[in-house]
């Protein structure tokens, strides 16, 4: 019946409004729920979530070794040409030639932090770092070489 539906409408509307008001009222009285980070003040204690993606880095171990084989999978996976892999040929002790990276050039200014290169990497050589304070006065500083000078590939990584 029309009138019953009308009255039901009114009461369900009031109920749903009260549900919303209860939520905001809860937040109003419970200040411990506040999620604001007062960033420059809490720089020392700032904890970023694990999934935060700041920039691409290549971890090296204590012997200055990395895991990159120079397969260019990351370069191919990158949607906007952020990564450029420059390869060279090393001579192994057995006298064979072996492909290795000379430089892994990373253009932070082009990167959208989409994580596709990290997914594409077959040997887990690159990861996403949590740094985020990237602003510099010179754009050239954003073009980075990810592998350290004179670094080598780790043993056992093919």
């Amino acid at each position: 019946m029309f009138i019953v539906k009308y009255i039901k409408n009114v009461f369900s509307a009031i109920k749903s409004l009260l549900v919303g008001m209860r939520r905001t009222g809860y937040y109003f009285t419970h200040h411990k729920e506040i999620i604001t980070q007062q960033y420059p003040d809490n720089r020392e204690t700032l904890v970023l979530p694990e999934r935060f993606k700041g920039e691409v880095v290549m971890p090296h171990n204590e012997n200055n070794e990395h895991r990159c084989t120079g397969c260019t999978a990351c370069e191919l996976a990158c949607p906007n040409g952020t990564i450029k892999v420059i390869t060279k040929f090393d001579i192994t002790p057995e006298g064979k030639k072996k492909k290795a990276i000379d430089k892994l050039v990373y253009h932070l200014e082009l990167c959208t932090l989409c994580n596709l290169c990290v997914i594409a990497c077959p040997s887990d050589a690159i990861v996403m770092a949590q740094t985020f304070e990237h602003s510099v006065f010179d754009r050239n500083k954003l073009t980075k070489v990810l592998n350290n000078p004179d670094s080598k590939i780790m043993d056992g990584v093919e």
């Binding site: 905001t24 009222g25 937040y27 200040h31 729920e33 506040i34 999620i35 604001t36 007062q38």
Partner: peptide, 13 residues
């Protein structure tokens, strides 16, 4: 302040 607290923010401080 009210809007900030209701939106789990700190507001002007």
């Amino acid at each position: 302040k009210v809007s900030a607290w209701m939106q789990i923010r700190l507001g002007p401080n």
